[in-house]
């Protein structure tokens, strides 16, 4: 891997997920070795001639042949990405960053709390724990989306749910006709979620404000600060701790994160405009 120079990947499949989110599946042009990563790591994705952005890997860490990214069309680069199709080329640098603590979580219950597109960086965790099911206790996914149409990976969530060895609870901010599930923010699901607070690792990804309230609820349930993990976001350029854009106090989110335990960043997390 050359950390500063992108290598070319070709799009094998373009999947429209919801109205504004999509998944691309990529295969390396230059190498046959496949792409290995750990759940929670990200790549710098370069749209030639347009620009480069960090996007977490949303695929299965056990399938190294295909590299999967899911994102929402928001900025200049993602809006261009949304126009890509099968056969197009993108540049990839990575994988970068510290992963989710799936190894440390062995023997524990796992609570995954995701908001919106925040489910994408956590999907590799779900794949990993389901493939190594015997090493973990209860697995609970609490997922909040804006509306039922905005639920990401809906079919796959239904498939996971049918396994019966994972609890999936979904809530939406705004319901539509025909929705019989939960309505309300994802934090309302925490008090009744079936996990043992003494032996639980929580992994959270969503907007900062959602993560803040989720942490409060989890601590109320008795989780230790060192058992709660979040993934942070900042503008990034280099992805490897040089360019300074993602500096977060003493930490560089690209290099020291993006996954942090709440204990590590508690003193930074509450700071406004850091």
């Amino acid at each position: 891997m050359q950390a500063m120079i992108p290598s070319s990947y070709r799009i094998q499949k373009f999947i429209k997920e919801t109205q504004d989110t999509f998944t691309i599946e990529l295969k390396s042009i230059e190498s046959k070795n496949g792409f290995t990563f750990e759940p929670g790591q990200f790549n710098m994705i370069y749209i030639y001639g347009i620009g480069e952005i960090p996007i977490s890997i949303s695929g299965d860490p056990n399938k190294s042949g295909i590299l999967t990214h899911t994102t929402r069309a928001v900025g200049i680069v993602t809006k261009e990405m949304a126009k890509l199709k099968k056969g197009d080329i993108v540049g990839i640098r990575g994988p970068f960053g510290r992963p989710w603590p799936v190894r440390e979580a062995v023997g524990n219950d796992i609570v995954i709390v995701a908001g919106g597109i925040g489910l994408a960086p956590l999907r590799p965790v779900i794949y990993h724990v389901l493939e190594n099911r015997e090493y973990y206790g209860r697995i609970i996914l609490l997922y909040g989306a804006r509306t039922p149409q905005d639920i990401l990976f809906r079919k796959e969530l239904e498939k996971f749910r049918s396994r019966l060895d994972i609890d999936i609870i979904v809530t939406v901010d705004r319901a539509i006709k025909g929705w019989t599930g939960n309505v309300g923010v994802v934090t309302t699901l925490i008090p009744r979620a079936p996990f043992d607070p003494i032996n639980t690792i929580a992994m959270i990804c969503g907007p900062e404000i959602m993560m803040r309230y989720t942490i409060i609820e989890l601590i109320k349930r008795g989780l230790g600060k060192d058992k709660i993990y979040v993934t942070m976001e900042r503008n990034m350029k280099c992805g490897i701790g040089f360019c300074g854009h993602c500096q977060y106090g003493t930490e560089f989110i690209c290099k020291d994160g993006p996954v942090f335990s709440y204990k590590e960043i508690e003193h930074l997390f509450g700071k406004r405009e850091l």
């Binding site: 993602t78 503008n235 854009h245």
Partner: peptide, 12 residues
């Protein structure tokens, strides 16, 4: 320098 694609800027 810190402007996000969403328009949010941590250092406004």
């Amino acid at each position: 320098f810190t402007l996000h694609a969403s328009g949010h800027n941590p250092r406004p």
